[in-house]
Design a protein around this nucleic acid. Sequence first.
DNA 1: ACCCGATCGAACCGATCGGTACCATCTGTG
DNA 2: CACAGATGGTACCGATCGGTTCGATCGGGT
Lengths: 193, 193
Amino acid sequence: MPVAKGSTIDPARTRAAILDAATPLLYERGLDGIGVAELCTLLGVSKETLYRHFGTKDGLVQAVLRARSDRVTRSLAEAVAAAGPEPADQLAAVFEVFQRTYDEPRFRGCAMLNAAAQHHVEPVRAITARHLDRYLDTLTGIAERAGAADPHLLGRQLLMLVEGATVVATHHGPAATGEHALRAALTLLAAAS
Amino acid sequence: MPVAKGSTIDPARTRAAILDAATPLLYERGLDGIGVAELCTLLGVSKETLYRHFGTKDGLVQAVLRARSDRVTRSLAEAVAAAGPEPADQLAAVFEVFQRTYDEPRFRGCAMLNAAAQHHVEPVRAITARHLDRYLDTLTGIAERAGAADPHLLGRQLLMLVEGATVVATHHGPAATGEHALRAALTLLAAAS
DNA sequence: ACCCGATCGAACCGATCGGTACCATCTGTG
DNA sequence: CACAGATGGTACCGATCGGTTCGATCGGGT
């Protein structure tokens, strides 16, 4: 059956559906851990459609990573905004968001870092670097509102804690990782003002 | 020419030479970024020899990772031992060692984390987890000597800083990363005793 | 001096990969 | 009702991959 029985033909919708369905697959199996053929089968899409929308597998990968970075950054910003004006509360919100991802059964580490480690091509590394810059912006903002003497330094140190917590949660177990990282972050925050 | 012109036939030596030469190649190109054929060409070894020593490519990969973990752990322990009895000095020695690796021109992030992200097989993840455990032992030891109220907590937080610093150095530039991480570590150390 | 074993080089294998081409079929539009 | 475009299904392609095999050759222990 060349086209789905009751499916709506809408290129934009198809593209979004491919992105949504491919994201967890590429994350759990690894960028090179699943081939285009299997990917299309699990997605319920033909290879021709996938290639028409994304050009190459790498195009799909980059689109997935960009969408993921946007989504994660947005949800983090919303959590911070909802935490109120206190920098300490905002930090707590940050590590709460991350702890929730650590506790997910499919958690396999930071998707952006994994992608950069797997795919040795420049565009992917650039997407990852931009993603970390977004984290850094959020954390530096908290540092500024806390009145840190050197908010850029504190922001960078908080970024290390965030990424380090993700690494530790990945390879050393997620239990209490967010809380331990938060306590360290609050110590740095208190010492920097 | 079936066997090298003036080479000594010594299986143990051959195996060690393969390990040494394969380590930087697999690190810089990625575990799946270089094939066995090219690997053997660059190593100056035949495929038969490689497979006789390591069984499979995965066997070579795991041997390389184990050897690397041993070497890094040893050099870190030596640096800490040479830093004297002061925990603060020992922490400085730790981040000095890491900063030196960040500054290497071929630096591409933590080899163990990259391997775990690339190779979705259990043994590799186990080697990475054991590597982090070794780091944790060293850092917890420093926390204990510093008289920390909860040395295991402080050790884990220091581990986050170490791994986070490596991530930041990888994707956000190595400049001053070790120093920034050290200052955060010293703050945690001072607050925990 | 002899012989076992380690080694090289090259050919070879089956599987899988990313990507392309073609066609029948369905949807949405006018 | 008719047409254009989006899609699914399938077969196919060249390249590359990990791994095996075989014969020729050389070093080292006996």
